[in-house]
Simulated assay, not measured.
Amino acid sequence: MTQDDFRQKCRAAGIGDDKPLFLVLEMLFDTAVAAKDAVQDGARGLTREGEADLVKRIARQADASMRDAAAKHRLRLERKTSLIAGTVAAACLLLGGGGGYWFGWSSGRHSVETTERQIAMAFQAGPDAAGIWLQLMRNNDPRKALDHCSGSTVWSDNGRQACSIPFWIDGPGAPENSNR
């Protein structure tokens, strides 16, 4: 039986080259082939020292064969593991990046849609009221105006809080010349 026949029989039995059992079987096969070759080459008339030397040679050959097969097997597993790990890492990056983008986009879109609905509700009083609200929004910065709401400027009426804030009804005037 040749090495190729041996591999085919192992595959037929469901033992692939990447299985640890294959390495053991391959080492046994190589040892049997080496012993057969030694016997066929006239080893039958060996002395005790010759037999001991033959056993040592076969053991060294089997050990070298096993080490070589184990090294090949390790390299196959390292490549396979690296490929799997790289694929998993790339998939995680793609899913994480895509998910983060989608979440940011959808939450930002939701926020804009909510604001649009609320502004539309504020403009329900008609086009004239909408124009007035638009002018007031252009003339005032709500964050700066609300900075004035503290202490004695805040009061409650019917369970709702209110405050006195500067509320500009006209647009900004001409800039003052500070060089005078």
Rank of each mutant, 00 (worst) to 15 (best):
K56V: 12
R57I: 02
F167C: 12
D5H: 02
A174M: 09
Q40N: 13
K9E: 14
I132W: 10
G97W: 03
N140K: 07
Q124L: 03
A174F: 05
G96E: 11
P166F: 01
A70R: 02
D63E: 15
D18G: 07
W168D: 09
R160F: 00
M66T: 14
G42V: 07
C163Q: 05
R60V: 03
V55K: 10
S65L: 00
R57A: 08
E49M: 00
I119K: 14
G104D: 15
A43M: 08
K144T: 07
G151N: 15
R143F: 07
Q161T: 03
A34T: 05
T81Y: 15
V55T: 11
T114P: 01
A89C: 05
D17S: 14
Q135G: 08
V154G: 06
L23S: 01
S150G: 09
I15D: 11
N158G: 08
D41I: 00
I84D: 06
A129V: 02
F29R: 11
T153W: 08
A145S: 13
A125Q: 04
R143V: 13
L146S: 14
L46S: 01
C10A: 08
G50S: 02
S82D: 15
P142S: 09
G45N: 09
P127S: 11
A85K: 13
A129C: 02
M27N: 11
A59R: 14
L134P: 00
W168P: 03
G173T: 05
Q161H: 05
R138P: 00
F123S: 07
M1G: 07
G16I: 00
A71L: 10
D4S: 07
S111D: 14
E116C: 06
L94W: 05
R76Y: 13
K36H: 13
G151A: 13
R7D: 05
R57W: 03
D4M: 04
R138L: 04
T87A: 11
G173V: 01
R11A: 07
G151R: 13
P20L: 08
A64K: 09
S111Q: 12
I58L: 11
A38E: 13
L46N: 04
A130P: 09
D68S: 15
I119Q: 14
R7N: 01
A125D: 09
D5G: 03
N139Q: 04
R180W: 05
G108D: 13
A69H: 09
A162W: 11
A59Q: 12
E113V: 03
I165L: 12
N139F: 03
T153R: 15
M1S: 09
N179Y: 11
S111M: 07
R143S: 12
F103G: 10
M1Q: 07
E116M: 04
A52Q: 06
C92K: 05
N177T: 08
K144R: 13
R57K: 13
V33R: 10
A130Y: 04
P166K: 11
E26D: 08
D30K: 08
I165A: 08
V33D: 01
G126T: 02
R180S: 06
D17L: 10
G171K: 10
R48V: 00
A52M: 01
